[in-house]
């Protein structure tokens, strides 16, 4: 059995420890905010936080996160930090089709946890593993910078 914390609650998973974390999150726990894009850790759509660090949940087996604290978009969205990020994404027009956005928000959160006052280069680096096929990234970058500015003191 694998035990870990997901969005603050203990999860006990009885299945094969090689089950991909994303499948436990989406299929077993029904949290569908985390998206699967490439399934190879290249696109970042499945990004979650693992002990505060960005991780692609499609290439990590659940057995590898035993004892860890996982946060998905559902765990972030109702927090002050999450609300600030989501409002900034809306205000900045960062979202088109939206598929990459949960991963983008998690990448932004991972950045702000480490650096609450990032510059544009820091932001571009932070989302460098997250692919968006709609926006061309500029509005996403602007929105993350906006979140950092409006949310001063939150991180």
């Amino acid at each position: 059995m694998t035990e870990f914390k997901l969005n603050g609650k203990i999860v006990r998973f009885e299945g094969n420890p090689l089950t991909r974390l994303i499948d436990v999150i989406r299929e077993d726990l029904g949290l569908t905010g985390t998206k699967e894009g490439c399934g190879e850790g290249e696109c970042g759509a499945c990004s979650v936080l693992r002990n505060g660090k960005l991780t692609t949940s499609c290439i990590i087996p659940v057995g590898a996160v035993a004892g860890d604290e996982i946060v998905t978009i559902e765990g972030l969205r109702d927090t002050e930090q999450g609300k600030c990020l989501i409002d900034a994404f809306a205000e900045g027009g960062a979202v088109q089709c939206g598929f990459c956005i949960p991963g983008m928000v998690m990448a932004a959160q991972a950045l702000l946890l480490e650096n609450s006052d990032p510059d544009e280069e820091d932001v571009r680096m932070a989302i460098s593993g997250n692919i968006c096929r709609c926006t061309g990234y500029d509005l996403i970058v602007d929105s993350i910078l906006l979140a950092a500015k409006k949310g001063k003191g939150l991180w």
């Binding site: 090689l18 499948d23 087996p61 057995g63």
Partner: peptide, 27 residues
């Protein structure tokens, strides 16, 4: 897992299919 999970991936929503026994030593 970043090499093995990709090399033996079986598809969306499916646990990778390893042709050998595996031990997860991450922890």
């Amino acid at each position: 897992g970043s090499d093995l999970m990709v090399q033996y991936k079986a598809g969306l929503g499916i646990t990778p299919d390893f042709p050998f026994p595996v031990m997860i030593i991450t922890k």
